[in-house]
Nucleic acid binder design. Structure first.
Length: 281
DNA sequence: TCTATTTGACCGCT
DNA sequence: AGCGGTCAAATAGA
């Protein structure tokens, strides 16, 4: 036992340098993500200020998704770093730790042998409950299964990232209705996206021939007016996805026509794309 | 014809 | 044996 503890502490000391370097790069990543999110938010505001009359709901939603993606990545990095530090702290200090997290994340130990009893019990996951199922959360998902779960009236749908093969992204999610009245859906995310959203967008077909169906989204650098930096131009084919104008009139808050996660991101910024620029001013 | 979804079968674990 | 998770052939739809 004593020998086991000594060797464990040795490993911890040897890992310290490596961990500090990792933390630095993590901070850099978080900073880059947040800067990118800030740029997208600025771009979103510009669109809303200058193009309120035209139907640019898709640009707004995609920008909001980009903002959400930036924050999701940043949170994931911070939670990882935090968990790592807590593991170290717990091994070095026996005092109890505050286990509260922004996102629910399982830290239950993996079975060394044997099959996991469920994904929830064995891997890190984040669970989200909402009145509507989350289908559009900024990532592309591919459904690979649906199953009736025992002790549940509703089927569970299994999704994996559409870039599982292309980019070896192992992110998965499960969507299941957990309550009828009022309707409540549980969306559980497993693993983290290793795919890049912008890479995903780059695989969209670029069709400059049909300007009516295509819209340009530019993620400009803050100094974009000086053209010192090359803009990252993403062209999205928008078909059957634009929000019907009559719906736009009915909906009063982003959460009514966006996925709840995207809406949360939008509302967190105090934006309401359904409003006009005059409402904002 | 191509791509995404559906669904029954299969696998590995308890 | 029964369960949850995944695979892959069949099917649907654009």
């Amino acid at each position: 036992m004593k020998r086991h503890i000594t060797s464990y502490l040795l490993v911890n000391n040897l890992d310290l340098d490596k961990r500090q370097r990792t933390m630095k790069s993590s901070q850099q990543k978080v900073m880059e993500n947040l800067l990118h999110g800030h740029e997208c938010a600025n771009q979103l505001r510009l669109i809303m200020d200058h193009h309120a009359e035209s139907d640019l709901s898709m640009e707004r939603e995609d920008l909001a998704k980009s903002v959400l993606h930036c924050f999701t990545d940043s949170l994931s990095i911070l939670i990882d770093t935090n968990d790592h530090n807590q593991d170290v702290d717990q091994s070095n200090n026996s005092s109890p730790q505050d286990s509260s997290h922004v996102l629910e994340s399982s830290r239950k130990p993996l079975h060394k042998r044997g099959r996991k009893t469920s994904m929830v019990e064995s891997s890190d996951y984040r669970r989200h409950e909402s009145p509507n199922p989350i289908y559009h959360d900024g990532f592309l998902w591919r459904k690979y299964g649906q199953k009736q779960i025992k002790e549940s009236d509703h089927q569970r749908s299994y999704y994996k990232c559409a870039y599982t093969v292309d980019q070896k992204c192992e992110a998965k999610k499960q969507v299941q209705m957990i309550q009828n009245n009022p309707p409540l859906y549980s969306t559980t995310y497993f693993g983290r996206h290793t795919c890049q959203l912008h890479q995903a967008f780059e695989t969209f077909p670029i069709d400059t021939s049909d300007s009516q169906d295509s819209h340009m989204i530019r993620f400009d650098h803050p100094d974009s007016s000086t053209h010192q930096h090359q803009n990252q131009i993403i062209q999205l084919k928008v078909e059957q996805m634009t929000m019907p104008s009559e719906k736009a009139e009915e909906w009063s808050s982003p959460s009514e026509y966006m996925s709840s996660e995207v809406a949360c991101a939008v509302e967190a910024f105090g934006f309401n794309p359904a409003r006009t620029s005059s409402d904002l001013s």
